[in-house]
Amino acid sequence: MRELAAYTTSTGEAIQFWVLAVFAVLGALSTILMRKAVHSALCLAGTMIILAVFYLANGAYFLGIVQIVVYTGAIMMLFLFVVMLVGVTAADSLKETIKGQRWLAALCGVGFGVLLIAGIANASLKDFAGTGKANAGGNVEGLAALIFTKYVFAFEITGALLITAAVGAMVLTHRERTERAKTQRELSEQRVREGRHVPPLPAPGVYARHNAVDIAGLLPDGSPSELTVNKTLRARGQIRDVSQEAVNDLKALEQRSADRLERAGTEEASK
């Protein structure tokens, strides 16, 4: 592999490139086209892994590993955590609201891409040096030698940047409690005082058939009651409506019991 990344490229690398490049582009397109943020994140993670492979193929062994560990492993997982926290909102439809935005975006994208590719094609990059010589003493050692000599200041500053970022994230997400949390007694007294909904909220679930918290309890007429579902789920619009199923199930049950009663009746009659 070391020779591979050196002065020439092998047929194997070419095959690898053409196959994986297709998947990388597909992953990128899926990232921007998938409706749900979770799917986008997963597609992006796939693209990043393919990029890690490309790094390895280019002789950047350290970066390839870091790409997998840090990017795909840590950063993308952080994204997934936030997706979980924030959730999918109703605004996440792919319908465009700004007039002409999509056309302009497509125009700019195509123009930019064409220009960039034309620029690369225009450059004379027939010959290349290869990383063989640079990696002679080992890729990690080579990087370390550069980082701790030529780029040592940038490296130190990066450390400061990371610390600052960590503190900043804490400051941004930390919420100071400015008042004491209300006790259960105070909450119940407040409820009585307001007189809006005095008894406890009804529980979710239907007829002991569903006990999942995202399933609304049904009112006597068979329509779901949103009161029974947790506030956060309500806000996200993640209520599973099973009223129709429940009614159908009930019908089926009645049908079956009717069938059985009828059969029992006929059997009894036949006896």
Partner: peptide, 25 residues
């Protein structure tokens, strides 16, 4: 809308690339 402003920025970047290529040509 931040996205509209982003379009202007992106268009501007495209123009700069075009200008650079033209100057090289």
């Amino acid at each position: 809308y931040a996205r509209s402003y982003a379009v202007s920025m992106f268009g501007g970047a495209a123009l700069i690339v075009a200008a650079t290529l033209l100057m090289r040509a």
